[in-house]
Design a binder for these strands. Structure first.
Length: 183
DNA sequence: CGTGTTTGACCAGCGC
DNA sequence: GCGCTGGTCAAACACG
């Protein structure tokens, strides 16, 4: 993984990229800074989907209106590289948030199950799983090494249960993400 | 005591 | 086959 392509095209293959009709923005050579810039200046596109306020954890309440960039990726987590059996293929939804806190309070309860050092990044990547019974939604949280103010959160899977806390903003966002992605 | 975090070990995929 | 890397597991630990 280099240059944070994971955000838009985590798999090293570019086949799905070229065949992707809904995600023209996710070219392999696009730069993250451009993503931010475009999204901040243009909120029309759904990957430019941007909210003016997110539910920032109370302890960092003064960090208002972080810039956010939502990137809805139809990426396949595991492609059927093994001939016979196929791994579970789930879309991933990544978005960038300009925030000083890593953990966005999205209203769900998450349990951290791993942390790994990432190549070419001084910041580790954290792995979280939804603690709700039967809901195996995961998310990864990573901070950009080039811009420590940007936190990249990657969601994997769809919650099978209602939100647990009243964070209307994020729920709305998630709903929109699901709508746009066809779920 | 229940819940969540930390962290080293383990495993699988991929490139060489 | 081997090494690297990403992803997951699970025991130990911390905390309210």
């Amino acid at each position: 993984m280099e240059n944070y392509q994971i955000l838009f095209q985590p798999s090293s293959s570019s086949s799905s990229l070229s065949s992707s009709t809904h995600l023209p923005l996710f070219s392999s050579n696009m730069q993250n800074s451009n993503v931010l810039t475009n999204a901040n200046g243009n909120s029309n596109g759904f990957w430019g989907l941007k909210t003016d306020h997110v539910d920032v954890p109370k302890s960092d309440a003064n960090n208002t209106n972080p810039h956010e960039t939502f990137v809805v990726s139809q990426d396949e987590v595991k492609q059927e590289k093994k001939k016979g059996e196929k791994k579970v293929r789930r879309p991933r939804y990544a978005f960038q948030t300009r925030s000083h806190v890593d953990i966005l309070d999205d209203g769900y309860r998450w349990r951290k199950y791993g942390q790994k050092a990432v190549k070419n990044n001084i910041h580790p990547r954290s792995y979280y799983r939804c603690t709700h019974q039967g809901c195996n939604v995961k998310k990864q949280v990573q901070r950009l090494s080039k811009d420590e103010g940007i936190v990249v959160t990657t969601y994997e899977g769809i919650h099978t249960h209602p939100i647990e806390k009243s964070t209307d903003n994020f729920e709305h966002i998630l709903n929109q993400m699901q709508i746009y992605s066809g779920f």
